[in-house]
Design a protein around this nucleic acid. Structure first.
Lengths: 334, 334
DNA sequence: CCTTGTTGACGTAACGTTAATTCAAAATAG
DNA sequence: CTATTTTGAATTAACGTTACGTCAACAAGG
């Protein structure tokens, strides 16, 4: 491949001029005619800048890493989208990694920890990385931004507590009095549960304990089964994470529980899939796209050494998307 | 951050020795005591090799790019897994890109096209990239391997035709005679349809035309609606791509069609989600993990200038996973 | 006519690695 | 005891960029 040296030779100018043409540097000036001559030579030789050399020289790679705990969870679609878009605006590419495959000594981690690979790291799922890995990451010379609440790192997140509250209040307003909160574990789920509690308290209802059965479809099924074993069965259920809603629907079907007639369901996080299930699932949509964008901006603040605007994103609030899985309580229970 | 020069100074040796210690080069020899002294200095200074400098020197980045057309399609989970794993065995990291966001001039593309960013490219969804983008990619100096049938590039793929055949034959063996093939578009879908045709022909049945409604949930719903408008309604349906199965189930529910009693459904590609739907979806599982691994191996053959073993992966055959969405035809129709 | 400023460019030193070459000292051979 | 080989290392030249410093030629100002 052609280098700047080749271009310089072909255009009959010095290296410095070629570099200046490539970068539009103002320091090194030249005649317009020279510029076009260089441009032509570049065109003719098919010159492509060498990123590696550039990165070495500038000590900056224009790449950021994003670590997610389960990449193909559809809730990350808009997040990824926002991150990629905002990164592109900063001229950067995104190196995507899955926390699940990030054991200590993994290739991805080694790559991150060696110098000069990325300009910064975005991470969601801090809780899922073992301490060794986090310790190694913390030793990373480039900034790290956590996309969820974190104690010892700059962080930014959507309003999970509020989402729990919105879902619950919606059910309360529909007349439900026995509402359970199902699924999840860890800080985020706890925040959502807190929102649930808050809404229950506000309505003068007693919150049920958090059925923290974990994540994914099976967690939803397990949660529903547990919930139905209570002395007084709930008439509504807030599902902590959206893929668990699939499991809730399946388990309800298996148990002969009609949704929404016998049980109303509201999920937290909204994905395309939810409108294609039957019944279509009512869910609280989180501003994940905005989280992605804001995350990148905050990271670039850090990279530039500017103070970074972190904390909870409140501007686009979590938004209730009403579909078919929740309905007003008509039968009087209890 | 500490460089080899710092380590050399601290250990009282030359740069060459440090480099040799880092890489275990045999050419530059040293006393064991010197080696440990260097190792200690590295430890003490927290030396991390600079990837960028290494890449520049070696003209190799130990990164490969993988381009998918819709990253969060769950069918890609195992593919990604296989690719990451095999890449790790080659000491490489994977740069993941989405074809959807790869327009001409996109950041990701620019990055790929500039020299020295990746050692090779894996791409699935060639058909989804416009000609400009493909032309640009083709000019890329590093090898490209296509993870689906391609005319003008080395390629490797799972056996889509066989999958269509397996799904269809299963339904034929269950006694179905009116079987339609729904969803998809493009080469891959066509292959699957070919398999469908083949199985129909083999059973002496007339294949229905390909209802190529596209991809995703909506495509499934559309396909089913179209299929039911035929003069004689089908008793079974092969769904070209798995996420469309969700749409088929939803549309069936909306139309009052009981699955599997009135209509048997078999999907191509299997994902976790399918066992959590009701009814759980019978599907043909494709060896995507193996495709990922084989793809990386083939790519590294190309990179090393060895002849690359491409073509259709036949070793793990597509495998039928029987669940609840297909059943024997009991009512005599037509 | 000399001074000062501007234009248009060139030379070169890094950035951190790796690997080829060189070389002194020690070990071994004859 | 000298000649040769081996050991253990040091020097140095790239890899392709970028940006600082320099500088000749020419123009404008006094």
């Amino acid at each position: 491949m052609a280098t700047q040296r080749d271009v310089a030779r072909a255009a009959g100018v010095s290296l410095a001029v070629v570099s200046a043409v490539v970068n539009g540097t103002s320091h090194t000036r030249m005649r317009e005619s020279t510029r076009t001559r260089v441009l032509q030579a570049m065109e003719q030789l098919g010159y492509q800048p060498n990123q590696t050399a550039r990165s070495l020289r500038l000590n900056q790679t224009d790449m950021i890493a994003m670590i997610l705990n389960k990449i193909d969870n559809p809730v990350y679609g808009p997040l990824r989208h926002g991150v990629h878009e905002a990164a592109a605006e900063h001229g950067a590419t995104v190196l995507l990694g899955d926390a699940e495959t990030m054991r200590s000594g993994s290739q991805f981690l080694t790559r991150l920890l060696s110098q000069g690979t990325v300009d910064g790291i975005l991470i969601r799922g801090e809780g899922l990385l073992d301490d060794d890995v986090m310790a190694e990451l913390r030793s990373h010379p480039k900034p790290i931004l956590v996309l969820e609440h974190a104690l010892d790192h700059p962080w930014i997140d959507v309003d999970d507590r509020r989402a729990g509250e919105i879902a619950t209040r919606f059910l309360v307003n529909l007349g439900h009095r026995h509402i359970v909160f199902v699924g999840g574990s860890g800080y985020l789920s706890q925040q959502r549960y807190l929102g649930y509690q808050q809404a229950m308290d506000a309505a003068g209802l007693t919150p049920a304990p958090h059925l923290d059965t974990g994540f994914g479809e099976q967690a939803g099924a397990d949660g529903l089964r547990q919930a139905m074993q209570a002395p007084t069965a709930p008439t509504a259920i807030v599902v902590n994470n959206i893929m668990s809603a699939v499991g809730v629907l399946a388990a309800a079907r298996d148990l002969g529980i009609a949704i929404p007639d016998q049980l109303s369901v509201v999920g937290i996080h909204d994905v395309d899939l939810m409108q294609h299930l039957r019944p279509a699932v009512t869910a609280v949509r989180m501003p994940m796209y905005q989280l992605g964008r804001a995350g990148v901006e905050a990271l670039y603040d850090l990279i530039a050494g500017r103070p970074s605007a972190g904390g909870v994103i409140t501007d686009p609030e979590p938004e209730l998307v009403i579909r078919d899985s929740a309905t007003a309580l008509t039968r009087i229970r209890d």
